[in-house]
Amino acid sequence: MARPAVFDSEQLLDAAVRLAASGGPAAVTMSAVAAEAGASSGSVYHRFAGRTALLAEVWLRTVEGFQDGYFKALDAGVDARQAGCAAARYVIAWSRAHPEQAALLLYGAEDFGRAKWSEEHVRRADRGNQRVRATLGSLTADLGGEGPQAAEQVALAVVDLPLSLVRRHLRGGGRLPAHAEDLAERCAAALFDSLHGP
């Protein structure tokens, strides 16, 4: 008698990403993930304590994977302006290379049940958020910006505007245009250049 296939957590999370990308967080259930992966429901429950843990893991794995490259992009620039432009481009390039994961990130942690997450999952999420805030604060200072308005402007340049471009195309089931990285960079550069007024 053949032994049943063994499914690891990564395969099950990949299946959850596909479900979330096509149907939103509500589509990610234990039984749906099992069916998508071709696994038994028992395999899913063996890896994840329940749906809340599954939702937390699929969100956190996606966010942490994105953030790893994002921080590297911010560190790669010769100066702060170049680093910020690289980060804006990275948001687009990563989304182009990982459209299903990008579609997932167009939701928020709350959509993936953060209110019911374990303390460890919440700590992981908070650590990532704190690192983002600290990094953007340093970028703002390195660009010569001061105060909350400057911080908002930098966040708009390297987070909000690139993500809005991704959202407009991916939410409609389309693809990112070839010029998207250049457009994100030009917008970021313009916002950086206007930090000190006209």
Rank of each mutant, 00 (worst) to 15 (best):
F48P: 05
F48E: 01
F48A: 02
A49L: 10
A49D: 06
G50K: 02
T52S: 09
A53K: 10
L55C: 10
L55F: 03
A56R: 11
E57D: 15
W59F: 11
L60K: 01
L60E: 06
R61N: 09
R61A: 11
E64P: 00
G65T: 11
D68A: 11
G69C: 08
Y70L: 09
Y70Q: 07
Y70T: 07
F71N: 02
K72P: 00
K72C: 08
K72V: 14
L74T: 00
A76L: 02
G77T: 08
G77D: 03
G77R: 07
G77I: 13
G77L: 06
V78A: 15
A80V: 09
Q82C: 06
A83R: 00
A86K: 01
A86Q: 13
A86F: 01
A86G: 07
A88H: 05
R89C: 11
Y90L: 04
V91E: 04
I92E: 02
A93I: 07
A97S: 08
A97H: 04
H98E: 12
H98C: 07
P99I: 14
Q101G: 15
Q101F: 01
A103F: 04
L105A: 09
L105N: 13
L105G: 11
L105S: 10
L106H: 10
Y107R: 14
Y107N: 15
G108M: 09
A109I: 03
E110L: 00
E110C: 03
E110G: 05
E110F: 00
G113M: 07
G113Q: 13
R114D: 05
K116R: 13
W117V: 05
S118R: 12
E119Q: 14
E120Y: 12
E120T: 15
H121N: 10
H121E: 15
V122G: 07
V122F: 03
R124V: 10
A125K: 13
A125P: 03
D126G: 01
D126F: 10
D126E: 15
D126M: 02
N129G: 13
N129Q: 13
Q130S: 01
V132F: 12
R133L: 10
A134L: 12
T135A: 15
T135Y: 11
T135Q: 10
L136T: 12
L136A: 02
T140I: 11
A141D: 01
D142S: 15
L143Y: 05
G144T: 03
G144A: 01
G147M: 12
G147F: 08
G147N: 11
Q149C: 03
Q149D: 12
A150H: 02
A150T: 08
A151I: 06
A151Y: 10
E152M: 13
Q153V: 07
V154M: 09
A155Y: 13
A157Y: 06
A157T: 07
P162G: 08
L163I: 11
S164L: 13
S164D: 05
S164M: 14
H169M: 05
L170F: 06
L170A: 09
R171D: 08
G173F: 14
G174T: 08
R175G: 05
P177S: 01
A178G: 02
H179Y: 08
H179W: 07
H179I: 02
A180H: 09
D182L: 06
D182H: 12
A184H: 06
A184I: 04
E185R: 12
E185D: 05
C187N: 14
C187F: 14
A188S: 07
A188Y: 09
A189S: 08
